[in-house]
């Protein structure tokens, strides 16, 4: 969990923001291309929310939210490979530093970490007591309402892509032609979370392993 916790950190962050604003004054538009992208954790947070978290809600998977929130392209694919073995995804309501921290959901189910994708294999969805019966699995404790006036729905608690073992500088160093994509902005995703488009706050070109400054 990243926190701005003291005066030095605040001043350092302010300097970084000022430098970035200065560089963006002369930024050039990127040409459209399919390329290797290194996405920073802030951008990945929104990406995870939109194309891994939402389609993991079992009510969406079952089509119960189709008229409003939409469905999920991976319906019926539990146990199947949906990504590379580097991809691990979980939802965890027990992380105290997260805004999605709680002990019991609104159906009284005690919370714990749920594996959603393991080494690229789709393992589970977020469940309430009703959908858990349909999927023949325990509830994952994700049933939450905004307050007492609303009916609880299956909601993410803290859905994340799991940590790897790469230093980000090493990840960049191996890229011949690509981009470093930084910080979340606006998502645009289709009803089944299949086609995705997410804008970032800024991107930097990577050429032969080095970040380019334009």
């Amino acid at each position: 969990m990243e926190q701005i916790s003291n005066k030095n950190k605040i001043q350092h962050s302010a300097q970084e923001i000022a430098l970035k604003a200065s560089q963006l004054i002369d930024a050039k538009p990127a040409k459209e291309e399919k390329a290797t992208v290194v996405m920073n954790p802030d951008f990945v947070s929104l990406l995870t929310h939109e194309i891994l978290g939402h389609p993991s809600e079992a009510d969406r998977v079952l089509g119960k939210e189709m008229a409003w929130a939409g469905g999920a392209w991976w319906k019926g694919k539990i146990g199947e490979k949906i990504g590379s073995e580097k991809l691990n995804v979980f939802d965890d309501p027990t992380i105290k530093e997260s805004l999605g921290w709680y002990y019991f959901d609104d159906e009284g189910v005690k919370t714990k970490k749920t594996t959603l994708v393991e080494n690229g294999i789709l393992k589970n969805h977020m469940q309430n007591r009703e959908t858990a019966e349909i999927f023949d699995t325990p509830s994952t404790g994700n049933m939450r309402a905004t307050n007492y006036r609303f009916m609880p729905l299956i909601r993410m608690a803290c859905t994340c892509i799991g940590n790897g073992d790469w230093n980000v500088n090493e990840m960049i160093k191996e890229v011949k032609n690509g981009y470093l994509i930084s910080n979340m902005k606006i998502p645009s995703i289709d009803m089944k979370r299949y086609n995705w488009s997410i804008s970032c706050q800024y991107a930097q070109k990577i050429e032969n392993g080095r970040l380019q400054i334009y």
Binding site: P41, H49, A157, C158, C160, G162
Partner: peptide
Amino acid sequence: CGNDFTIRPITNCGKGDPMQSMIMGNGGPS
């Protein structure tokens, strides 16, 4: 995937009819 795992706050995720806004966390590494 990087070793720089970070969690961010999401403060306004909408779902349902009537619409409900929910707070949650989302995160990951590079």
